[in-house]
Design a protein around this nucleic acid. Structure first.
Lengths: 340, 340
DNA sequence: GTGAAAGCGCTAACAG
DNA sequence: CTGTTAGCGCTTTCAC
């Protein structure tokens, strides 16, 4: 092991051809006849040559690396999404550099910059809320294309892929309404964020369509964490007149809500219905199994990867927004003895 | 946006200094006086220059990229570990390229090769079972150091970091024994793997130390998936004489076991105790909350990152094995009405 | 088909 | 302290 840096020149020497022949051969160029190619490959293997893509990219002024910037990989939903994304890109022959921003704008800035410095051909990002195009601009001046997933970029000159949040909560709210519930809460999320607004809009649309009286509807925003949600809902329950159903901003919020309701003495799936959004894997293992809005991360990932790769080929396409319709997965948490 | 490729020469021109001054300034060299440095930085920002690390690395013959190769990112434990690892490296100024191998040797081969071609300074790997040093050799001939996590590499010339599997299962088995259980099963895992053997050894050591009769002990290996585990345990229960406690190879296996037991009509945490290993986040949300052996992924990640970075500085240290003692987290799944 | 030569953007001596 | 010069390993005209 630990030979010195072998270059195509070394390969050329042992194969008895010239540098450029080796280069061409390594690229499967039709200019090289199969015979010579074989010879070159054998020589390369023999001396343990490993191709230096950095050098090639430098010369060729391109790369097949993409930077993946995720807001919160400790959130199971984003972890699942990241895995899907990684797979989509790897399948297409790209290598992905990954970084977590922990919902921190500075960190995000740094990471994007670093990826660009390393020659990322494109950036895939689940941006921190509030990210604007001008946050990105200074780093991607080389014309690196960006695709954002899950959350839009304000003023974003980029493609954007997300689940159809509105129809997602609309559908799951209707699922509760169909069971005859009339007093509902929408819980969790940060009011100034687009995702919150969309999910809330879906909820609102459903209750209005069902002719539910406004005074029976409550909206309780809170940080989308388990803890914040459990506290918020516990407090609400203590005020009396519990709702029949709680439509949560996300699964994490729903998990928190269930814990809070438990502390408040309510039985989810019996006294009160709870639904999540995202349908992370833990939903089916939860107690009670959580009804949720399934987001097809694989599909999202595929669209995102495709968009980015399209744009890599063709820089000046118009920017597109794509959304994927999610699907309500009914489990026990949304059952309710309606006589309640 | 989309200026052409700006180089240090452009910066030099607009700052009115020479190329090398810019290069030095960008590296915070003490040879450059702060004043000049400021001027250079301002010029760089002004024209929207972005540093080309690939070129720098090529020249300097080094890089600060590391390749992270994970066997199964869809497994929540490895996903959590990957996140910890990413954080450790990013904190130290490295950029991490990530790839999933799906427990597939070919895929792993390809990924390692690709990372090396891209100039990874080091490789961090949770290897596919059965990976040997000779699988790695052809790719890392440039002397790229490797650190393996969770699973050893056969004949591995590398550092190795893992939880103390033996003492982990030993401790969790003792937890069951202390409750007076005498009929135990060790469930799940592939017999030919080192991790299986270690975890089983811990189990065996505990029951022997407690003087449990051999005929009261059963070992039921199976693929470490939810499905395989649920089927295996259901089949076992149908044979009658159920055990009092089941020590599982991993959380995933334990989740599966719980489902299987449920189908078989047993109540986990009442009629029968179940324990996991890894303590993924879903354990606490599971029904019933799953007793598990907590693996400190953050610590593992830190050790792994440190090892790799040490070796990057100092190539010829002896290889070390480090293990982290895990901790039993008792939850409801391991309770048992002992009169059973 | 194959080889020679120039150069991608940067760093690292070595002079000034 | 700053500028000049020669490459890092590869690709790519352009002759042969």
């Amino acid at each position: 092991m630990s030979q010195k840096n072998l270059t195509i020149s070394d390969v050329a020497k042992t194969a008895g051809v010239s540098k450029s022949t080796v280069s061409l051969a390594l690229q499967d160029s039709p200019k090289i006849k199969p015979e010579t190619r074989k010879k070159v490959m054998k020589a390369a293997k023999k001396i343990g040559y490993v191709y230096n893509r950095a050098a090639a990219n430098l010369r060729r002024r391109s790369s097949e690396m993409i930077g993946m910037v995720i807001n919160d990989l400790t959130n199971p939903f984003f972890a699942e999404l990241a895995v899907s994304l990684e797979r989509s890109f790897t399948d297409s022959g790209y290598v992905v550099m990954m970084a977590n921003t922990s919902e921190d704008t500075h960190q995000q800035d740094k990471v994007i910059r670093t990826f660009c410095e390393h020659g990322a051909a494109g950036i895939l990002i689940c941006p921190v809320f509030g990210t604007t195009q001008s946050d990105l601009d200074p780093h991607i001046s080389r014309g690196v294309p960006v695709v954002s997933v899950m959350r839009p970029i304000d003023g974003g000159e980029c493609d954007y892929i997300a689940p159809d949040n509105i129809n997602g909560t609309l559908a799951v709210t209707q699922h509760l309404l169909e069971q005859g519930m009339t007093r509902l809460v929408f819980l969790g999320g940060l009011p100034h964020t687009p995702v919150y607004q969309q999910r809330l809009n879906g909820f609102t649309a459903a209750v209005q369509k069902a002719g539910i009286k406004a005074e029976n509807i409550e909206v309780i925003p809170c940080a989308p964490t388990q803890e914040a949600a459990s506290i918020a809902i516990e407090k609400r329950i203590k005020q009396g007149e519990p709702p029949q159903g709680i439509v949560c901003y996300s699964d994490i919020v729903a998990f928190g809500a269930c814990f809070g309701l438990d502390r408040a003495g309510l039985k989810v799936g019996q006294n009160i219905a709870v639904t999540g959004f995202d349908d992370v894997m833990a939903c089916s293992a939860f107690s009670p199994p959580l009804t949720s809005v399934h987001v097809f991360t694989d599909q999202l990932a595929k669209l995102a990867a495709d968009s980015l790769m399209q744009r890599l080929k063709n820089t000046d396409r118009p920017f597109s927004n794509q959304s994927v319709l999610p699907k309500v997965i009914v489990r026990e948490s949304s059952r309710l003895a309606v006589e309640n």
